[in-house]
Each structure stands twice: as structure tokens, then as C-alpha cells.
């Protein structure tokens, strides 16, 4: 690549960092068409360069199509859609160890409740009445903690709740959780029996 071209890319990568890291709207990250407007039509190449630069830091640029999950919708048919419609985020490339959770302000109980809620909604085809999710969570956690937990997941954007009190998976789950990997891990897991 000529020197001038490299300099232009470096400038665009910096702009992409500003757009993706700093929260400007209700949701973090940036939409494809926003990036296109600022970085130009080759914004996907710029994001690819940024992704390579982020690799050593254990971060990556993630493309998420925002359709709220009709059951099984995650990833399916995404190839056919325009990248401009997607939202782009910077996420952790690897994963967190349980001991690192406290740095993020999560207790292991909270994560277990979130995992259970997400898995349950996936099993029910993406939507389930809040009362049913609460009932199942109550088998493992005290009632007040269940209600507080679900409210927190809704506030953070992991779950959504419609007017009829039905929960669904919201934008943050789609951005952060590899749903297929999670379900596979869940189904393959064999609890260690005592003795």
C-alpha cells in the first residue's frame, strides 16, 4: 500500500476507534451506515484493520444484525443482509475467568441467573412470560433477588419485556453472547457426580 494510502487508513482507524469505543447514543457501538458516512465506503476494510490491531489486546470488532431474536434468528440469513444495517461493537475476543467477574460488577449468582434466563428463553423459542422465568429462577435464588436480577438484565439490555409481560432476548445478548456455543456447551455438559 502506498504511504499516502497507509496514512489515510491510519486516520480512518483512529476515527473508527472513537466511534466504536465512546458511547454516543443509548447503545454503544455504531451502525454500519454511520461508519460508512464517517469512514467512507471502504469502512469494512477499516474495521478489518482495526480488528487486527485489537487482536493482541484480546479484543475484536463484532458485527451484529439487530433484529430482536425471533427464535433461532441469530446469525441465520445474516449473510444476505447489507452490512450497513448491522451494528458494530468492540467486544472481548476471549472470555472472562470466574475470578475476573468482580471487576465487572457481577456476582457469580447474577451470571448464573442471566445464563438461566437466556437459556430458558432460547429453549422456549426466544420468548417466555416473565412469570415463568421468575418461577424457574426462584428454584435456585430467593424471590427478591430474582425480581431484582431480571430488572437489572432488562436495564442492561440483555433481556427485553413487552407490554404483555413477555420476556425476549435483547440487543446486548445478541452482541455479547455466542448463543450457539452456549447451547452446545450446556447440552454437552455432564455434571460431575459426587463420589
Amino acid at each position: 500500500m502506498p504511504r499516502k494510502g497507509r496514512a489515510a487508513y491510519a486516520r480512518k482507524v483512529k476515527k473508527a476507534v472513537h466511534l466504536l469505543f465512546f458511547r454516543r447514543h443509548y447503545k454503544p457501538g455504531a451502525r454500519g451506515y454511520e461508519l460508512k458516512k464517517v469512514l467512507g465506503p471502504d469502512y469494512l476494510r477499516v474495521l478489518k484493520v482495526l480488528d487486527q490491531l485489537l487482536r493482541p489486546l484480546d479484543l475484536q470488532v463484532r458485527q451484529v444484525f439487530e433484529e430482536v431474536p425471533a427464535p433461532g434468528a441469530s446469525g441465520e440469513g445474516a449473510e444476505a443482509r447489507s452490512p450497513d444495517e448491522a451494528r458494530y461493537y468492540v467486544v472481548l475476543r476471549g472470555t472472562l475467568a470466574p475470578t475476573e467477574l468482580k471487576y465487572c460488577g457481577w456476582r457469580i449468582d447474577d451470571i448464573a441467573a442471566l445464563a438461566l434466563s437466556i437459556a430458558l428463553l432460547l429453549a422456549r423459542g426466544g420468548r417466555a412470560p416473565r412469570s415463568e422465568v421468575e418461577e424457574i429462577l426462584s428454584k435456585k435464588l430467593p424471590g427478591w433477588r430474582v425480581r431484582m436480577g431480571i430488572d437489572r438484565f432488562i436495564r442492561s439490555g440483555y433481556l427485553g419485556e413487552d407490554e404483555a409481560g413477555v420476556l425476549y432476548l435483547d440487543w446486548r445478548t445478541m452482541a455479547e453472547v455466542d448463543l450457539r456455543a452456549f447451547l452446545d456447551l450446556l447440552l454437552k455438559y455432564e455434571p460431575v457426580l459426587p463420589g
Binding site: F21, F22, R23, P28, G29, L59, Q60, R62, Y89, V90, V91, L92, R93, G94, T95, L96, A97, P98, L101, C104, I108, D109, I111, A112, A113, L114, A115, L116, I118, A119, L120, A123, I136, K139, K140, L141, R172, A175, E176, V177, D178, L179, A181, F182, L185, L186, L187, Y189, P191
Partner: peptide, 24 residues
């Protein structure tokens, strides 16, 4: 499966599929 798993086991499985967002 969900009902058989203990909370910490479930959380550990989830952590292996969870890539939190980075935002400032």
C-alpha cells in the same frame, strides 16, 4: 439440563460463551 446444573456450573459454562462489550 438447566435444573440439574448448580449455579456456579451454569455461570462457568456461560462465561465460556460470553464476550462482554467494551465501551467508555
Amino acid at each position: 439440563k438447566l435444573l440439574k446444573l448448580e449455579g456456579d456450573e451454569l455461570a462457568e459454562l456461560f462465561l465460556r460463551a460470553w464476550h462482554p462489550l467494551v465501551e467508555l
